[in-house]
Amino acid sequence: MKIQKAYTATDVHVAGEAFRIIKDAPFIHYQSLEQLNEQFPHVYADEIALLLNEPRGFAGLNGCLVVPSFSRKADAAVVFFNHEGMVPLQYGGVVAVITALLECGQLPLKESNEYKLETASGIISVRAVVENDEVISVKLESKPCQIVQMNIPYKDTHYSLVQADQLYAIFKKSDVPFELQMEDLTEVQRWGQEVNKSLSSNQLIKGAILLDDSLLPNGRIKTVTFRKDHFIVRSPGFGTAAACYASLLFKGEFTMKQPFKNESIFNSFITVQLANQSEEGYQFAFTARGFITGMQTYVLDPTDPLAAGFLLK
């Protein structure tokens, strides 16, 4: 085997959502994180395809590139991306990166447990608790979430638009004839594809959420989030949780005086708590945990006919 290129990466999952943290990327010149974020999809197009696409990756995989921070206030800087392109901020990615940096000894432990990551959306503060060299929890706050529009007609039901980390269309599970469980996954996927096609004319909507709030009295909700490419988000969703709880609070359906959970279709969860409410919107504090699933070296054989990879949809 000949090796033309080699890359090392650490894989981390956060509540089921997978992140590939890439090292050894080719050097390019940039003067700011914003400039790196702008150049990345063009300069690193081959690397993105090689490391995220199948057969080395898969459709739900997210990428993270960690570099030294530009700001003296931050411990490290990171840009996020997926198969669609650059992502300004991924809350789950923040949890994944902090977990990997601390558990791999690339970031010194602090007695305060407080760390800062520089992103294209600004500096994100996190509190990471470490016990026996293992990160057992990571807490961070969301950007303000705003209600855009409520009760928009859709066939025999309606949906709401909420701006969180991106713009979501939220539908109620009570309006569909199936449950949010793995046994009904085929029906869930079919519903998501149909809704995405109906919403395709609104390019601002980046995700459709199916919300089961029947478990709210028990301190949790259950959600499934569909990306524009029809794939299901592999975790309960951080932005999803913020959007759904903001919608429920706005409707006055409950008061959030204690931590609640957002649960996925396969029963993973993240914890959510209201952090602030102002004219700018609702802010939430997320608590989650990341797990390192592997450390690999990926290589490109110049004779490999699948160097650009593929995605089965």
Rank of each mutant, 00 (worst) to 15 (best):
L89K: 03
F40I: 07
K110I: 01
K73E: 15
P108R: 08
D133Y: 11
V130K: 05
A77W: 00
A96T: 00
Q106L: 14
P55K: 04
Q39D: 15
N62H: 13
G63T: 03
Q35Y: 07
V43N: 05
F58H: 15
C104F: 04
G93L: 06
L102F: 05
N62T: 08
F40Y: 14
V135A: 07
F58S: 03
A120H: 10
Q90T: 13
S69T: 13
R127C: 13
S137W: 04
A77R: 00
M86H: 02
Q106M: 13
S125V: 09
F27S: 15
N82G: 03
E111C: 01
L51N: 00
C64A: 15
N37Y: 15
T99N: 02
L89G: 03
V43A: 14
V97Y: 04
D133T: 11
P108T: 02
E111N: 09
Y30R: 04
F58Y: 14
F27N: 14
G57D: 08
H42D: 13
D133H: 12
E34C: 14
R56G: 02
I136E: 09
I28R: 07
V130N: 09
L107H: 02
S69Y: 12
K73N: 15
L109I: 11
Q90H: 12
Q106T: 03
E38I: 09
Y91Q: 00
Q39K: 15
N62K: 13
A45H: 13
E47L: 10
L52R: 05
Y91P: 01
T99F: 02
G92C: 05
N37I: 02
T119C: 06
L65C: 12
S32A: 11
V130R: 08
F80I: 05
L117F: 05
F40P: 05
A74E: 05
C64F: 06
F58E: 01
I123W: 08
R72F: 10
Y30D: 12
L61M: 15
E103H: 07
